[in-house]
């Protein structure tokens, strides 16, 4: 990994590393789209984080081993930025046994306790209160960890966010709320969902340290996150809003008919990946041909995730009864087995 970057002896450059991470997220998401087009994904409920890479990468750059987090349904980039294996992610998105959750969870329920990923969620706001509990555990067990909830602007419609913020602030927990404001919840623009779109003001009202940052510059996101996460570790929970734009439809089948082309073109100018790339070049930190090689290496890495996920096998049919309860507990009896048992007759 990162051969081209090392060659260019820029590994100390923070922006180069942030760029590298963001490009991996972007390319991974593009491959998820391709997996769907090739009919190899498990379903079409795939939510790409293209345009939001700086949120995932800028925040995760400040996380440590032992920190925990939950994500919303648009969480591939966050997990990848936290160190996930993209091949196992892609296999999960394809519903394969080799995936992180053995094909049971899929794109919207990917998780890895080893990396502190307490789970992606298909319930808007569903993963938010868990970080309050995880923060409580970190405090009582003195782990030094923080717990972060990543969610979209749409989740600010959910009452549970406010209950969670209040508890985190009241108990001074090492907790941070990260609101990725991509301006839309499905077809509803933020100003159509709230009379006060200055979302961080709500967090202030609860006593959290709150900021809004423009997601165009990943270093700005990283700096803001550094400050708020440091505060959270010290018992001052934080709330960070990252302003960005959802480049494509809500999920794979949505062509965004509710917004016009001019708006989309404008929105896509807010491209954190391109912006970081241009800055690396213009500041002389890296030249274009080196960056092209970096991008090509990433493309090769991510292409392989598609081949891997397609080649991997489906889960075993009887695996569906596994993990309803703890290992060693009796599994639920399959309907067919039950019928055979009760209808068995001479």
């Amino acid at each position: 990994m990162m051969n081209a970057l090392n060659e260019a002896a820029v590994k100390n450059s923070n922006l180069a590393d942030l760029y590298y991470q963001m490009r991996r997220v972007r390319t991974f998401e593009e491959r998820v789209g391709e997996l769907f087009v090739r009919g190899q994904s498990a379903g079409s409920m795939l939510h790409l984080s293209i345009g939001e890479e700086s949120a995932a990468v800028g925040v995760c750059a400040n996380m440590r081993d032992g920190d925990t987090f939950t994500t919303h349904h648009r969480g591939h980039g966050i997990f990848l930025a936290r160190g996930a294996d993209p091949a196992r992610m892609m296999a999960e998105i394809a519903g394969k046994e080799a995936g992180y959750c053995h094909g049971k969870g899929g794109s919207m329920h990917i998780a890895d306790m080893g990396l502190g990923h307490l789970g992606a969620n298909a319930i808007v706001g569903g993963g938010i209160p868990a970080v309050v509990g995880a923060g409580l555990a970190a405090r009582n067990r003195k782990t030094g960890g923080v717990s972060l909830a990543f969610f979209g602007d749409g989740a600010t419609g959910q009452g549970i966010l406010y209950e969670s913020m209040n508890m985190a602030a009241l108990w001074k927990l090492p907790v941070m709320f990260v609101c990725i404001n991509n301006q839309y919840g499905m077809g509803t623009r933020i100003d159509q969902a709230t009379a006060n779109p200055r979302l961080h003001e709500r967090a202030e009202a609860f006593g959290l340290a709150a900021r809004t940052v423009d997601g165009l510059a990943v270093e700005d996101v990283a700096d803001a996150a550094a400050e708020l996460i440091a505060g959270a570790r010290a018992g001052q929970p934080g709330f960070l809003v990252i302003d960005c734009y959802r480049f494509y439809g809500h999920a794979r089948k949505d062509k965004s008919p509710y917004r016009d082309d001019i708006e989309e073109a404008e929105g896509r100018k807010k491209d954190p990946v391109l912006s970081a790339r241009n800055k690396l070049i213009s500041s002389g930190m890296m030249d274009e041909s080196t960056l092209d090689r970096v991008d090509a290496e990433i493309a090769t890495e991510m292409d392989a995730t598609i081949d891997f996920s397609i080649a991997e096998k489906e889960p075993q049919l009887n695996s569906m009864f596994r993990d309803v309860y703890a290992p060693g507990e009796p599994e639920p009896e399959p309907v067919r087995a039950r019928l055979e048992r009760i209808l068995a007759r001479e």
Binding site: G43, G95, G103, K104, S107, E314, P315, L317, M320, V324
Partner: peptide
């Protein structure tokens, strides 16, 4: 049981 994302399951 819960419903899996895997179409087979």
């Amino acid at each position: 049981i819960p419903i899996s994302v895997s179409p087979l399951l």
